[in-house]
Nucleic acid binder design. Sequence first.
DNA 1: CCGATGAATCAATCATAGTTGATTCAATCA
DNA 2: TGATTGAATCAACTATGATTGATTCATCGG
Lengths: 99, 99
Amino acid sequence: MIDTTSGSLVLEGFRALGDPTRLRIVRLLEGGSRCVCEIQRDLPDVAPNLLSHHLRVLREAGLVSAHKRGRWMDYALRAEGWAELCQALPVLCKENRSR
Amino acid sequence: MIDTTSGSLVLEGFRALGDPTRLRIVRLLEGGSRCVCEIQRDLPDVAPNLLSHHLRVLREAGLVSAHKRGRWMDYALRAEGWAELCQALPVLCKENRSR
DNA sequence: CCGATGAATCAATCATAGTTGATTCAATCA
DNA sequence: TGATTGAATCAACTATGATTGATTCATCGG
């Protein structure tokens, strides 16, 4: 049986990606793990609290993970979350590798 | 050359997928082309005009294409649109095909 | 301990997007 | 032609989510 939990997670995932700021964050994290203040430096036009909010949305959608390192919080892409998106919508990943 | 138009199209694409009804429509269309009334039959809980609206959103995001056939409108997934999503966010498709 | 910094939370506002009902348009059939 | 069906559009309402400002929390350095 299919669990509704992951179903709504997929939905959350796509919804999370449907925001320009969050898309920018994801693109930054494609370069590797970053702490919030580093992300902040790359997105100067986004208020710190707002950045925190967007990171939370991405986190709750399972697309990023957060780890505390002393005074800092490191954010990184969470592979499982992205794999789930692909698996949930075959058309998204099938045959899209070439051309 | 990369155009800004497609950048916002990618955004529109993800936003389009962030709705449960539209996700259902996409999953139906993964089974092949369908006319609106067929989609309607599979989604009885969605009002006809609302369905029309969601199809429009998917169309404007470039994820589906529409072709008129007599009195009917056939909708189908538009491969180029999906490819663009993948290419815009490498993490989405890289390494997620296998396993 | 006290101040500063990194980060998250809260309540309030504002904008966007989903939903609804009614109307309109186009193509077919009697 | 007139009626019917498939489909889209429109205006209005509603709900959701992004943004803002202020506050709070935790951690480190002096």
